[in-house]
Design a protein around this nucleic acid. Structure first.
Ligand SMILES: NC(=O)c1ccc[n+]([C@@H]2O[C@H](COP(=O)([O-])OP(=O)(O)OC[C@H]3O[C@@H](n4cnc5c(N)ncnc54)[C@H](O)[C@@H]3O)[C@@H](O)[C@H]2O)c1
Ligand SMILES: NC(=O)c1ccc[n+]([C@@H]2O[C@H](COP(=O)([O-])OP(=O)(O)OC[C@H]3O[C@@H](n4cnc5c(N)ncnc54)[C@H](O)[C@@H]3O)[C@@H](O)[C@H]2O)c1
Lengths: 205, 205
DNA sequence: ATTAAATTGTTAATTTATAAACAAAAAGAT
DNA sequence: ATCTTTTTGTTTATAAATTAACAATTTAAT
């Protein structure tokens, strides 16, 4: 099965977030224009995304919330799930760890790594904190697929190399340092300054 | 002067981050293909972005790092700068606050807001923490233009409304709740789960 | 029953974003 | 001096993403 466009994948993730929220509020059906409004998109785009993932709604009634969540899951979730490790459990790492716990059963944070002895060797938020030196063993043993990097910028490069050598498949980098990864590792980078500078630019006349 | 495309604005912000780093390492000139490589873009795209912002390099020598930083500043920075407030000083809010301090002189975090009495009334990272009830006065007095929302999701909506009523022009929302804002307020939303789900999707065959 | 309104699904058109192509200029080599 | 190489700047072409258009279907109203 061929991969969907990156933009569609992003939106499907966003839709699911909203759909889960709708389900928790007891909503059974949702129209494309409702979903669109939540995410500041057009109804056509929502329907097109849904078409691309091969899901169908009911005319005049909309999309069955529960079924659509499952359909998105069949696209985004990997069969038995993927395991995630976070490296650098400072403010940002902890925020991410907290944010993830319990939210996506198929994306499990199974290990966290740091160098600070006040953090290593104990559990934080129910996840064991290992020393970074043990990345090779732990990544192998716990079958970790994806890594999130939230270390101080000067350690970003070596952290990425450590993860890649340990056999990780994808990296989400929050440090301010752009990384280089081999072709078979998928890399995503995010910088809050860029987001805020964009807001700053467009928020003025 | 008309606005540049959003994608170009994002990339200019990314370029500047790297250029500042290059300058600190004493680099005087940079080629388009060098800048491109850092950000996993093509050299053509870099040159096109530079053209769009009306800057010029020197043939065979590349772009003067210092001058290009200034040129990007003339696009991204507002004359006397813009003031920023962060609402919700938990793990994420603190990470953002720390990350910003000292990085962009034209984007100043001048106030932070919370409800927790252990945080309000004192300084965190050199910035005074106010109670959220004082948002109207403080936004007015400190001339705050942009707001970052990092409160628990159930308070996201009321926080946004508070900021908008106080006269804010742009919002960066990190909560899991999609917001609605009037036309004259620019809104940007970011969700780490979406980023990680994208990584997870493309990191497998 | 018939008609009107609302909504999905899909194709076609448009717009936006990226990449290719190449002229012009500068630096260095012969 | 002349030629070759490298790199910028800009135009043209291609590709991707979004929007518009509309047929098909369902529900509800008359
Ligand atoms: N991209 C963004 O939007 C954004 C926002 C905020 C912070 N940041 C960046 O994220 C990173 C973390 O920010 P923070 O506020 O959590 O910082 P922090 O100082 O609170 O946390 C850093 C953590 O990394 C640990 N650490 C240090 N060296 C390490 C190593 N070699 N291996 C593993 N762990 C190590 C420290 O012990 C600490 O726990 C920084 O690079 C910061 O610049 C990025
Ligand atoms: N978008 C993302 O990628 C992402 C990542 C992590 C966390 N989050 C979200 O960001 C938010 C903050 O996360 P966190 O880990 O920092 O949580 P946290 O609990 O550490 O911090 C929340 C802070 O908000 C304060 N607060 C509570 N109610 C408030 C109110 N009405 N007004 C102002 N402040 C109030 C609390 O006192 C606390 O200091 C949460 O909504 C979380 O889900 C988003």
């Amino acid at each position: 099965m061929g991969k969907l466009p990156a933009k569609t994948v992003e939106r499907l993730s966003e839709y699911r977030r909203t759909l889960i929220n709708c389900m928790n509020h007891g909503k059974e059906y949702i129209y494309s224009h409702e979903l669109a409004q939540f995410h500041h998109k057009t109804a056509v785009q929502v329907r097109r995304d849904i078409m691309l993932m091969g899901f169908s709604g009911v005319q005049r009634k909309g999309y069955k919330v529960k079924e659509m969540i499952d359909a998105i899951g069949r696209i985004l979730d990997y069969k038995n799930g993927q395991n995630v490790g976070i490296v650098g459990i400072g403010h940002l790492g902890t925020a991410i760890l907290q944010y993830f716990t319990g939210k996506r059963p198929k994306l499990r944070v199974v290990a966290i790594f740091d160098v600070d002895e006040k953090k290593t060797g104990r559990e934080i938020n129910g996840v064991h904190c290992y020393h970074v030196d043990t990345i090779p063993e732990v990544v192998e043993r716990e079958n970790i697929d994806l890594g999130i990097i939230t270390v101080p910028p000067e350690f970003a490069k070596e952290t990425a190399e450590g993860l890649i050598n340990a056999g990780i498949r994808g990296i989400l980098n929050f440090t301010t340092v752009p990384l280089n990864v081999p072709e078979d590792v998928y890399l995503e980078e995010y910088d809050m300054i860029t987001s805020l500078e964009k807001v700053a630019y467009f928020a003025r006349g």
